[in-house]
């Protein structure tokens, strides 16, 4: 028995309407990554996470749960979960990610903030007002709920006097830059991905990294937002040699992530095919630039092909910080 599409979509929409996000996350958990970074509250230019990287560990845990239900008799009972979820935040109770997973994604956010600080870019952060942008509702075609939510995001940006937004992932970039202006009259916030901002700022590497890296373009960045050259320019300037798969740039191949919650098996098949293409380059490590791509492809590769967010590769060259959670942990252990 496949998962009931209507109930899963309904559950996500209920969450967006009642709790402001398709997979609700407390403000404390969503903003923990910024602890100790001294990022000012608000400001004309803000780093806008849209909680995408923070949500990923919870989405991964939820998908694991759904994948276990798919093709079993339990799929018939998902509608009960949707009913109960209207009253109790089931998606938060049901999905319990590991601490390592949460730390991995939080570290990516810290990397990005540090990269921007190092490049001299000034920005604030909206903390508890850094709202999810609604990408999943958009994908599902639930525009009524999305429009209401987008107006909430717009009102929040106006309240804080935000004029420029630096986004971190392709989904939030696409929503704020290309979708919101079609839904909200007078939405005139300037939206740029941090990769564009870093490339424009002429960020200079502090050390050269002589390594090869296979690049996996995000569909949204490459085909909807035109973010293709910036990540390459930043990597090359740092010394990396870019290994391009045949399916690259505007002809990049999907990671399977967008349908993971509804069709886990099919999503996995697409990810496995993409990993095969990436492996076919002969490269030994892969860079992604979207949290969904990273989660999807890393799961499909199952440890056989190292994969990291592009911020990890850039941090090694452009800052003197530890770029990943495991290095951070090792360092803190050795310091004590």
């Amino acid at each position: 028995m496949p998962l009931p599409t209507g109930d899963i979509v309904g559950l996500m929409v209920d969450n967006l309407e009642k709790r402001g996000s398709v997979f609700p996350l407390s403000a404390k958990k969503a903003t923990r990554w910024a602890d100790g970074l001294d990022i000012p509250h608000g400001g004309e230019t803000v780093l806008y996470t849209g909680a995408m990287y923070q949500l990923l560990p919870y989405i991964i845990a939820m998908v694991k749960l759904l994948a276990r239900v798919e093709d079993t008799f339990l799929a018939n009972w998902v509608f009960m979960g949707r009913f109960a979820n209207r009253f109790v935040n089931l998606s938060a109770i049901g999905a319990r990610p590991s601490r390592a997973e949460i730390e991995r994604y939080n570290q990516i956010l810290r990397n990005i903030a540090r990269l921007l600080q190092q490049a001299g870019v000034e920005f604030g952060y909206l903390y508890e007002d850094d709202l999810y942008a609604g990408a999943l509702a958009y994908d599902m075609g639930v525009d009524g709920t999305l429009r209401t939510h987008a107006k909430r995001v717009d009102a929040t940006l106006r309240k804080h006097g935000v004029r420029k937004v630096i986004t971190l992932d392709p989904h939030t970039t696409n929503m704020l830059r290309s979708v919101y202006p079609t839904m909200i009259d007078g939405f005139d916030v300037e939206v740029k991905s941090y990769l564009e901002v870093l490339a424009e700022a002429g960020a200079e590497p502090l050390q050269r990294i002589d390594e090869d890296v296979v690049i996996h373009d995000s569909c949204l960045y490459a085909r909807s937002e035109g973010v293709i050259d910036e990540p390459r320019r930043l990597l090359e300037r740092a010394g990396y040699t870019i290994n391009e798969p045949r399916e690259s740039r505007n002809l990049t191949y999907c990671c399977g992530g967008p349908i993971e919650a509804l069709f886990p098996s099919k999503s996995h098949d697409v990810a496995v095919e993409r990993v095969k293409q990436l492996r076919g380059t002969g490269g030994s490590q892969v860079t992604t630039m979207c949290p969904m791509c990273l989660a999807s492809l890393a799961k499909a590769a199952d440890g056989t092909l190292p994969m990291e967010d592009i911020s990890v590769f850039l941090t090694r060259a452009y800052t003197l910080d530890a770029p990943d959670a495991s290095t951070e942990k090792k360092r803190s252990i050795s310091e004590h």
Partner: peptide, 30 residues
């Protein structure tokens, strides 16, 4: 595809997709 999802959301899943309630010219902008 998003149009068909909206239609199914309204007609089959009983969701508030907002289809046809407000003009949305996304196609022209994308």
């Amino acid at each position: 595809v998003r149009f068909l999802r909206s239609y199914i959301g309204d007609e089959v899943f009983g969701l508030d997709t907002g289809r046809g309630r407000e003009e949305h010219h996304a196609a022209a902008h994308r």
